[in-house]
Computed example of a mutant assay.
Amino acid sequence: MDAPARRACKDAHMFPIGRSLPSADDLLVLLAVGRSGRFTTAADSLGVNHTTVSRRIASLERALGGRVLVKTSGGWELTALGRRALDAAEHVDGVVRGLVDPDGAPLGGVVRISATDGFSAYIAAPAAVEVRRRHPAVSVELIAATRRASESRSGMDIEVVVGQPSVHRAEAIRLADYCLGLYATRDYLGRHGTPADRTELEAHPLVYFVDSMLRVDDLDLAHTGAGSGVRLPAMAGSVSSTNVFVHVEATRAHAGIGLLPCFMADRHDDLVRVLPDEVTVTLAYWLVARSDTLRRPEVAAVVDAIRAQALARADELRGRAGAAR
């Protein structure tokens, strides 16, 4: 018996007696579920039905002697055993892809991103286009949402949130700082007067998020000033929305003074910065993803493109273009 055969026999005896070796097919099914967080999505990507996915996962758990997935409110989350199995699944997937294209299979698959409205439009979307230009087989799904980083991250490969997140079993990467400032139209200021200082802001309505539905601490602090040192006086609400594009357009429609991202407001010549020397709130975008997700080549390509786009737009994000105008 040659050395590889002897080694294989030795390794086989190390596996618990009475338990079958995990199937490579079962591992690949786990890989699909781990990436999407959902059986139905994994089934669609594999071209099988939901029942087959469930049966494969059960088979893998019998072989490994423990649970690899647990159900959460956001989908299916990997257990500690599941994360170890996912590492093996990624190796299997890499070997299979290498057989198809020994020189390196082209990147493919779907990368799903959750990000705020403004970031999605001005940073993530151009980054996705650049990834698609380099890797046409990669699809990028952008889900616009302003929220905290989720605990499970099931169903999302990448999350971009405002403010440093507290995360477990995931990596948090600071992308860029950006600023909020007060803006109004020339027409509005001509009819209602331009505030000379912060105290005069009380006479003006504010365009901002719906207070009762705001779930991002840093954005709430930006309004109250508790975290930024720039405390705004109590301002009556005007048009409020969960969507920052609505803030911009309502301000452009003369609804009041909007607390807007500078990189969005400075694009519009009809908006004037109000009290720029007194009211500038600096916040930060953070990217959150699981370590195993970041190891996927297509995800890494998207993350690199997002970071490059954020770096290229750093001055704009910090509002320097508007200050110089």
Rank of each mutant, 00 (worst) to 15 (best):
H91K: 13
W76V: 07
V100A: 04
G98Q: 00
A89Q: 00
L81I: 05
G98D: 00
W76K: 07
G82R: 03
P102T: 11
G82C: 01
R83Y: 08
D101P: 02
D87F: 09
A105W: 07
G109V: 09
D103F: 04
L99S: 10
E90M: 14
W76F: 14
D93C: 05
V110M: 14
D101I: 01
D103K: 06
D103T: 11
R112T: 15
G108Y: 04
L78C: 10
R84K: 13
V100P: 02
R84P: 00
G109E: 07
A85L: 01
D103G: 09
D93T: 01
T79I: 00
A80P: 06
A88D: 10
D87E: 14
G104R: 07
D93K: 06
G94M: 01
V110E: 15
A85K: 01
D87I: 04
A85G: 05
A105T: 09
V110S: 14
V95T: 09
G104S: 09
A89I: 06
A88P: 00
V100C: 03
D101Q: 14
T79D: 08
L86D: 06
V110I: 15
G104W: 02
A105M: 10
A88M: 13
P106R: 07
G108Q: 09
A88E: 12
I113C: 10
P102E: 14
E90R: 13
G98C: 01
V96Q: 05
A85F: 06
R97E: 07
L86Y: 12
V95E: 10
P102F: 13
L107G: 11
V111P: 07
A105F: 09
R97C: 02
A85M: 00
I113L: 14
E90Y: 02
G94D: 03
D103V: 08
G109A: 02
L81A: 05
G82T: 01
I113P: 14
R97N: 11
G104A: 09
A105E: 11
W76A: 14
A80Y: 03
R83K: 10
R84H: 11
G82Y: 01
G104N: 03
A89S: 07
D87M: 05
I113W: 11
R83H: 06
E77R: 10
V95Q: 10
V100D: 04
V111F: 10
G109L: 07
R97I: 03
R83L: 10
V111C: 07
L81W: 07
R97W: 10
G98M: 05
V95H: 00
V110A: 12
R112W: 12
G109S: 03
L78K: 02
G82I: 04
A85Q: 04
R84A: 14
V92A: 06
L107M: 12
L86R: 12
R97A: 14
R84D: 13
L81R: 05
H91I: 08
W76N: 15
L78H: 03
V100N: 00
R97S: 12
L78A: 11
W76Q: 13
L107Q: 03
G94V: 01
G108C: 08
L78S: 06
A105C: 09
L86W: 12
P102L: 13
V95D: 01
R83P: 08
R83I: 08
V96F: 12
G94S: 04
R112N: 15
G104Q: 05
D103R: 12
E77K: 09
